[in-house]
Amino acid sequence: MASKKTGLMDKWKAEDKPVKIDKWDCSALKNALDDAAKSYEKNQYTVMTENFGFKEEHRLMDLRLLICTVAVGFSLFALVWDYIRPFPESRPILIICVLSYFMLMGVLTLYTTYMEQNIFLVASDKDKAGLEPDDKWELASTLKKYTHLYKLKMTFTNGKTGLSRSEEIERPVNNYFDEDGTLLFKLFEPEVRTLQGRIAAASKKE
């Protein structure tokens, strides 16, 4: 971070605090590892290739946020409308709101299972000259219930050729957390680095 701001939001952030979680909580484990992989990717790019624009793409998550917002909007509208025009009168509007809400919930389920899958980072690597299309990096992960295996999948799509290559690792989560549930970033980082190295090496061969 270049500028040292000391606003309330920055004080509130817990970036310097070691990541300590409840190690029996599956989603907390997954979130901690996802965040670590994400921050590794980001840091690496800001440090190593400062000239290149490495930008996190938020489109995938933004669309999910939009779907949720519209759905909650429908229910809020139904609530207000039913308050202004008590029940029998508000029936047609209620029907519309209820149907739209449950349809949007269906859309949300489809979206998260088929579009978002388990992708938690999409980043574009801008071509320096700005001529070629951007290269794309994607990170996806799974940690199935009742297992201790964390699967991290990294996909690289070459903007020019459109070829994509993915590599994945599957490791027990206990490799990266100590007894108290503190994330050991130093043990996790090399794994992500080798993953990236493998993709880079393979892409070069082509």
Binding site: C68, A71, V72, F74, S75, L76, A78, L79, D82, L94, C97, V98, Y101, F102, M105
Partner: peptide, 11 residues
């Protein structure tokens, strides 16, 4: 959404 789901089921 949790609150909304309950509300919409009710409505």
């Amino acid at each position: 959404m949790i609150v909304s789901s309950a509300l919409m089921i009710w409505k």
